[in-house]
Amino acid sequence: MEILRVENLVKTYGDGENKVNAVDDISLSVEKGEFVAIVGASGSGKSTLLHLIGGVDRPTSGKIFIDGNDITKMNSDTLAIFRRRQIGIVYQFYNLIPILTVEENIKLPCDLDKSPVDKKQLDEILDTFGLRARRKHLPNELSGGQQQRTSIARALIANPALVLADEPTGNLDTKASEDIMNLLKISNRTYNQTIIMITHDLELAKQADRIITISDGKIVEEG
């Protein structure tokens, strides 16, 4: 089943001489349960693509269908609600709320949605991510790896259709990176979670089902 379809997506910055096509007419499709890695040099447009798919940025033209819904047609509030229910984003710099505890950070998308948190699921996720003992801690009391695990847990809590990870290991050492990759793979397999991950580490990318290579805003290689 197709969970994501991107059609002729364009994102342009600036105008006239300064005009830059960060994403230049990209079309792609992702099946449910797929683990896709997007690779490319810095400035290739991979992060922009991810932001567009995640609905945190708006395309200049083109369409993005997630689970059959065209998110480019949604107004910002509908999109925000869609985001908290259907998309989980993991950033390189974690982007946790510094004054909320680990547990509060993880529950945030559900709290915003005012939907009840499945206690069993929360415990399971805390266990899986090894955060149970740290649930009452604040982010700055955690190591980088633990912070990233928290942010992945936050991305998974609402059972989204899509998890987007933007260089999730970019800020971590090798040991922690492997750890994070394993968690992503586990969630991909056990929860049949669709994941799109950006990385410039080919070794990590190879662990995905499919690799898409981007250069100058275009897909240059797929598969």
């Binding site: 945190v56 869609f82 908290r84 998309i87 915003l112």
Partner: peptide, 15 residues
């Protein structure tokens, strides 16, 4: 930044 982060995890502008 906080509001941006909240927004990226799905807080509506109304919230």
């Amino acid at each position: 930044k906080l509001y941006g982060m909240l927004s990226s995890v799905g807080a509506t502008s109304r919230q």
